[in-house]
Amino acid sequence: MAAGKRTAADLGAHICFEDEAGQGLRPPKGRTWAPRGARPVVRVRGRNRGRVNVAGVVCYRAGCRSRFFFKLHIWHGRRGEPKAFSWRQYRDLIVMTHIQLGTPVVWCWDNLNVHLVKELADFAEEHQDWLQIFQMPSYAPELNPAEGIWSLLKRAPGRLRRRRPNAPHPRDQAETEEGPVPVPPGRRLSATHRPDHGRGHDQTAGLHEFTLSNSRAVNAV
């Protein structure tokens, strides 16, 4: 990873670590207190199919606050529906992260098979002016800071607040705005590599950013 850090410093880029996580839609089991002889019953749907996949990327740059973006893929269990992210969705995640950061990107991720497809390699080669991709070693989750994000999300969801990428920091604004993610002016892509091309969507559609209100948790990551 030292090579990636030197590359990011030389380019004035953000170094971005990407990782995936998922959660099944099967209702969870739990235990609670209840009066004797009055067992609490929670009615749920009988179907156990479905899954929510999250592709998240945590971004760092010297002198800047860290950023965390994520994209969702929901599988409903329908016939013919893709269960996981495609290479096009990963490409769009890279592009949208670059647009929001406004700097070159040094992208670091693991050796998942979809990360290694020829289409993504060709895309990286075509956009060498702002994109450098590094494959992380196998079986080395300790090198990826994004791995720690998932435990924070599951342990303390109440401390997370969604905010617009260009909105003021929470300490400067008591209430955060909700609305469409803005696209910085002058950052248009060619039609070939535009996310959601041909469907009339915003370039940053589907990309979300979360901020951790607990500064100690951010520093720990």
Rank of each mutant, 00 (worst) to 15 (best):
D19Q: 06
I133V: 10
R47T: 10
L153V: 02
D129P: 02
T32W: 06
G186W: 06
K118R: 15
S138G: 10
D92L: 12
V42W: 03
H193K: 05
T176N: 12
A191V: 03
E175D: 15
R88K: 15
R155Q: 09
G200V: 04
R162D: 13
V42P: 01
Q135F: 15
R79T: 15
A62K: 08
V218E: 03
L93M: 13
T103G: 01
Y139R: 02
V117A: 05
Q23T: 14
A220W: 04
T204K: 03
R26N: 03
A191T: 06
V117D: 00
N219P: 00
P28A: 00
G22I: 04
R45T: 08
G206Q: 03
G24A: 03
E81P: 02
P40M: 12
E175A: 15
H127Q: 09
R79Q: 14
F69Y: 12
F68N: 02
L101H: 11
R188M: 14
E125A: 11
L93C: 00
K118A: 11
R163Q: 14
E18D: 06
L212N: 00
H98S: 03
H127T: 01
P28K: 02
G24L: 07
R61N: 10
F210H: 02
R78G: 02
P27Q: 00
N219W: 10
G24Q: 07
G63L: 02
L25N: 02
R162C: 07
H169P: 03
R194Q: 15
D19C: 05
A140I: 09
T103N: 06
V221L: 15
L189T: 10
V58L: 03
R45H: 13
R45C: 06
Q173M: 14
V106Q: 09
E119T: 13
L212P: 00
R216Q: 14
C64P: 02
P141R: 13
L160H: 08
S151D: 06
S151Q: 12
Q173V: 04
K5G: 01
P180G: 02
G186D: 07
A220L: 07
E142H: 04
E175S: 13
E209T: 00
F70K: 05
E177P: 01
Q173A: 14
